[in-house]
Nucleic acid binder design. Structure first.
Lengths: 213, 213
DNA sequence: GTCTATAGTGCGATAGAC
DNA sequence: GTCTATCGCACTATAGAC
């Protein structure tokens, strides 16, 4: 049997295995790690769960976990990038002459699709994990801060001057954060955009309030 | 020799070592660690500096470092508690009938003493270290968030209702953060309270702006 | 003060996809 | 052949437990 024969055999085997795709490399590795991590964190606690355990629970090694996520906390924070894109898309889609505050409102409105009512229970579970660990809270704040910075950049690109751009961007981040917290509160029924609108109105009232009590 | 005798002996030894005070426990250990840490971080970078090196540079062990600071980052963030107290003191000192926005302004005004012009260069050095490391930025955001939460509690105790209290508290934190960033910017000459006042005015303008461009 | 578990990195080897 | 995901191993620093 020649070397060529061996190659041919191996190739035919490869073709057969391809019809049953991804035997060793199953797709969506990151997603499976995220799901497994949330489940383990919720069950046993964040600190009581090692990166190795998460990896093993989906048939991978610790080293692979860290290939997908730069650190252990990050496994809970994928998707924030998509949220940022939604915000920026909302700003980009706003009409030319929009005021800074209208751009903020456009950004806030654009994330409605991310938070349908069905996602509330998942969001609550995830948040309950985050709320129980300071390190996770730090990461969450950091992500929100990065989001606000991105909004600030977008506003500046649309010609909004400083310090208005930074103020408006951080206000958007602030309102979104408070709205999200309220949205996942037990018993809350309003949509996240409804909550956002009420908060924006309240912010207007707050800053515009007269100086008499 | 009874158990009581042993206790007496041990006590007398303790008294003797106490009469030669603070030979190995020099005062201001935390402060010396903080100063050494900042210097090393600025010179070599945060990640390139180990906790053991910081400790050794002031004649202490790594273990002692972690007794003073729960983690390595924390050595850069002491003093935030004093800042929080200043904010809360400003709110407490505000007159009875103050509006939420007046309470916010009172809180912002109360931190002027923390940021005299002489402290700018030190603040800049510290910030340059923080800006170069995401982990430190996360801690900084977290501290600001804790500060805003504390302000929110104080506002609620003064009878401010939700969601106004949270909105006002986070606005205060936001304005302070932007003001501080501006205050340490090269060439900036205004006091931090002056910057804060201008930002508050700008926030009023932003939220109250008409809907025409 | 000592010991230890875990987080996280660096690098070389392997193996599948193309 | 290239590219990339995975593994395996050695290693350090952090941080907590004892």
């Amino acid at each position: 049997m020649s070397v060529t024969d061996i190659n041919i055999r191996l190739k035919s085997v490869a073709v057969i295995t391809y019809t049953e795709p991804m035997v060793r490399w199953q797709p969506g590795t990151s997603e499976r790690l995220q799901a497994a991590a949330l489940e383990l964190f919720a069950g046993r606690g964040y600190e009581q769960t090692t990166a190795a355990e998460i990896a093993q629970s989906v048939g991978l090694t610790e080293r692979t976990f860290f290939r997908h996520f730069s650190d252990k906390r990050e496994v809970l924070f994928r998707g924030q990038e998509l949220l940022t894109e939604a915000f920026l898309g909302g700003i980009a889609a706003a009409p030319e002459g929009a005021t800074p505050m209208e751009l903020v409102a456009a950004a806030l409105d654009s994330v409605a699709d991310f938070f349908p009512s069905e996602r509330r229970s998942h969001a609550r579970l995830r948040q309950s994990v985050i709320d129980q660990n300071p390190a996770l809270q730090e990461r969450e704040r950091h992500k929100m801060s990065v989001l606000a910075s991105a909004i600030g950049d977008a506003l500046r690109e649309r010609g909004v001057a400083e310090p208005t751009a930074t103020l408006a961007a951080q206000s958007a981040g602030m309102v979104f954060g408070i709205a999200f917290t309220q949205w996942i509160r037990e018993g809350e029924e309003r949509s996240i955009t409804d909550i956002e609108h009420e908060l924006l109105a309240e912010l207007r009232r707050l800053t515009g309030a007269s100086h008499t009590a």
